[in-house]
Nucleic acid binder design. Structure first.
Lengths: 201, 201
DNA sequence: ACCTGAACACCGTTCAAGT
DNA sequence: ACCTGAACACCGTTCAAGT
């Protein structure tokens, strides 16, 4: 994924790059998207200019930082798509995605305000959409998912839940589970509304 | 609503205040929340300092600007609460609220990112929540709304739809209608899933 | 009293000078 | 080649000087 050109780069440069990525990943995860690049630089022990040498703009740094999480999300989607029960796969995928956000402040911010320009959003769509499409098709064939449900709707439900989570996280970080259930229930096909052995809360 | 104290204030000051409010309302509606206070000042023909004299901070200006819209939303909720059919009132209230956002960029931004600190959000909750509670109670008594549905859930559905609208507006400003339908369907009580004479789109 | 605009703090980004 | 930090543009906010 990172080869073909660009002579190996000096060892110190490579180290700085890795260090910055690591530092930024940590800071964005715990403190959210508005950590300053100056702060990232200081914590990494380099000058601001170095950050901009490796990442032309803050968005580029964000893209690389969250590319890692995107990979995890893709894995989750792949596993979910392999589930023979389409509905169950879909639900698990959504739960996984929300759990990731639950534990990463920066991801919450990104997911709730998806700039269509954002490289990560684009790649995310490209990689995950086909997998979600498989789940949707399967679940519809199995009669458990509404027939008028689109694969892109899953992405929008993620956006919706992200916004809710962002709004409620500070007060009750797990309230989103309630809304997740609500939305999932709205996805069910006619006559598949039985509570599936969960506690009623 | 604006009396009891503060000697009437000089005529030019009062005019400036009104002018600023009007200008800001216009600009936030069409250009969104990140219009500059310097721009507002210029367009109103005053200095920046004047803006800050009348509104201690940008948030205060926003609060006053959107207090007007809040009043309209409250009216809508009151009308909806008066509907003998609880379900129909609830649906109309949601449709109204979304229509307001649809036509106001600043409102879209605010609704999608509700800071709990925001005075408008607080007032909105205080004024509208009891009305929504009436609708929810009525609809549940009439058996058309899920029994495990909370009045606060309505507010969160608004947040969710606002985020979706914000994400899709540029490309397809009316796509939110689809998701509104989806969520509304998720609110239905068991056995009330008939398509109610709408076109299927 | 109220208005004005220069000035400050802050953040993203650039670039001349260093190694 | 790459690093550094001062410098710039921009936005929110303040305040000394004007009327």
């Amino acid at each position: 994924m990172t080869d073909t050109m660009s002579p190996p780069a000096r060892k110190d440069a490579a180290r700085n790059r890795a260090l910055l990525l690591e530092t930024a990943t940590q800071m964005f995860a715990t403190q959210g998207l508005d950590v300053t690049l100056k702060d990232v630089a200081r914590r990494a022990g380099v000058g601001v200019g170095t950050v901009y040498r490796h990442f032309p703009a803050k968005d580029d740094l964000l893209d690389e930082v969250f590319a890692g999480l995107l990979a995890r999300a893709t894995d989750s989607a792949r596993t979910a798509a392999a589930d023979p029960d389409g509905w169950r796969g879909l639900v698990r995928y959504l739960e996984d995605a929300m759990l990731m956000q639950r534990h990463n402040s920066g991801l919450r911010g990104l997911a709730a305000t998806p700039a269509p320009s954002c490289a990560m959003a684009v790649k995310s769509r490209e990689e995950i959409t086909p997998l979600v499409q498989q789940m949707v098709a399967k679940a519809q064939k199995q009669g458990t998912l509404r027939p008028d449900f689109d694969a892109t709707d899953v992405a929008y439900i993620q956006v919706a839940l992200a916004a809710i989570m962002e709004a409620t996280y500070a007060t009750s970080p797990d309230l989103y589970r309630h809304h997740l259930k609500l939305f999932i229930d709205g996805m069910r096909a006619e006559g598949h509304r039985e509570p599936s052995s969960e506690s009623p809360d």
